[in-house]
C-alpha cells in the first residue's frame, strides 16, 4: 500500500486501526480466548467420560466411551444439591445488592474533593487492605460478638465491604464524572443523595456493573466462610459442597495411614473424579449464563459514554 492509499483507508475507517493490525489483534485475542475456554470444555468432556475410558486411555478430548454416570451421581444428591443451589443464589444476590450499595455510598464521598473527612475515611478503608487481626480474632468477633453461626448472616456479612472495590469505584467516579456536574446540581438545590442517585449513578453504570460482577463472583465462589461458621447442611452453598468433597479426599489421603482400614472404606465411597468434574460444571454454568447479562450493562455504559461525548 502506498502512503496515500493508507491514509485513504485510514480515513474510510473513521479513526480506526488498520485492517492488518486489527487482524493481528483478532489472532492474539482469539488464541488467548481459545486457551481460556478449552480446559473448561475439557472438564465437560471428562465429566461425560466413562470411568473405564479414563482408566484405559487417560483423560482425552475423545474418550473411548461416554457416560452420564457422573451426572446421575450428582443428581442423586437430591435435596442437598437443590438446597445448596438455592443458597448460592440467595447469598450471591442479597450479598451483591447490599455490598454494592455500601461500596458506592462509601466511594462517592471519597471522590468528592470538597468532602472534609475524605482522607480520614480513605485511610480507614485502605488500611484494612494491608493490616488485619488474623483469622482467629476475626473468627471470635464474628462468632461470639456478632453471632454468626449457622445462619445466612455468617455467609454474607463477613464479605460485605471490599476496600479494593471501593478503590475501583472511586476511580470510576474520578475518570467519568465531571466535577462541574455536581457543582451545577448543588447550585440547583439538589440534595446530596438525590445528586448521587439521579445524576451520578447513570454515568457510572459501567463501574457499578464491574463492581457488581466482581462482588457476585466473590460470593458465588466463596466456601471458606461456610467452613468457619456453618455446620448445618441445609445452609451449604454449592461451592462448599464441592470443596467438601475435595477436602474429604485430601484429608483421607493425608491421614490414611492413621485411619487405616476404616479410611479405605471412606475412600472407596468418595465421589469419583468425573463426579467432581460434573459438580464443577454445575457451579460454572450459572456464572457463564449470568455473565453476558452483566456484560450488556458494561456495553450499555459504553454507548452512553460515547453518545454524551
Amino acid at each position: 500500500m502506498t502512503a496515500v492509499s493508507k491514509r485513504m483507508a485510514h480515513s474510510f475507517r473513521l479513526n480506526q486501526v488498520s485492517r492488518k493490525a486489527e487482524a493481528a489483534f483478532h489472532l492474539v485475542l482469539g488464541l488467548f480466548s481459545l486457551a481460556c475456554i478449552v480446559p473448561f470444555l475439557f472438564v465437560i468432556i471428562i465429566s461425560f467420560s466413562a470411568e473405564d475410558s479414563i482408566r484405559r486411555i487417560g483423560y482425552s478430548f475423545v474418550p473411548a466411551a461416554w457416560s452420564t454416570d457422573a451426572y446421575r451421581q450428582v443428581l442423586s444428591l437430591g435435596d442437598a444439591l437443590w438446597h445448596s443451589y438455592f443458597n448460592s443464589f440467595f447469598i450471591t444476590i442479597v450479598g451483591t445488592l447490599v455490598s454494592v450499595t455500601m461500596c458506592v455510598m462509601y466511594a462517592y464521598p471519597l471522590f468528592r474533593r470538597d468532602y472534609r473527612f475524605r482522607s480520614f475515611f480513605s485511610f480507614l478503608s485502605f488500611f484494612t487492605m494491608i493490616f488485619g487481626g488474623g483469622l482467629i480474632p476475626t473468627y471470635i468477633v464474628c462468632k461470639n460478638l456478632l453471632h454468626m453461626s449457622n445462619n445466612y448472616y455468617a455467609l454474607i456479612v463477613p464479605m460485605l465491604v471490599s476496600p479494593f472495590n471501593i478503590i475501583i469505584m472511586r476511580t470510576f467516579f474520578q475518570t467519568s464524572v465531571p466535577f462541574d456536574l455536581i457543582e451545577a446540581a448543588t447550585i440547583d438545590g439538589s440534595g446530596e443523595y438525590s445528586t448521587l442517585i439521579r445524576i451520578i449513578l447513570p454515568i457510572v453504570k459501567p463501574g457499578i456493573a464491574t463492581v457488581s460482577l466482581l462482588t457476585a463472583l466473590a460470593y458465588w465462589n466463596e466456601w471458606f466462610l461456610c467452613l468457619l461458621y456453618v455446620t448445618q447442611r441445609e445452609l451449604y452453598p454449592l461451592q462448599y459442597l464441592l470443596m467438601e468433597m475435595q477436602r474429604n479426599a485430601e484429608f483421607l489421603a493425608r491421614n490414611s495411614s492413621m485411619i487405616g482400614a476404616a479410611g479405605a472404606d471412606a475412600i472407596r465411597t468418595l465421589p469419583s473424579q468425573t463426579m467432581r468434574m460434573a459438580v464443577v460444571v454445575f457451579i460454572v454454568l450459572p456464572i457463564a449464563c449470568a455473565y453476558p447479562f452483566f456484560q450488556r450493562y458494561v456495553v450499555a455504559g459504553l454507548t452512553i459514554g460515547s453518545v454524551k461525548g
Binding site: 467452613l227 467438601e244 477436602r247 485430601e250 484429608f251 471412606a266
Partner: peptide, 21 residues
C-alpha cells in the same frame, strides 16, 4: 450431635478449642 466430616476434621474442634467456645 454435630456431624463433622473428614473435610472439616482439622477445623471444627481446632476453632472451638483455640477460641474457648
Amino acid at each position: 450431635p454435630v456431624w463433622g466430616t473428614w473435610g472439616n476434621f482439622d477445623d471444627l474442634a481446632f476453632n472451638a478449642v483455640t477460641t474457648g467456645s
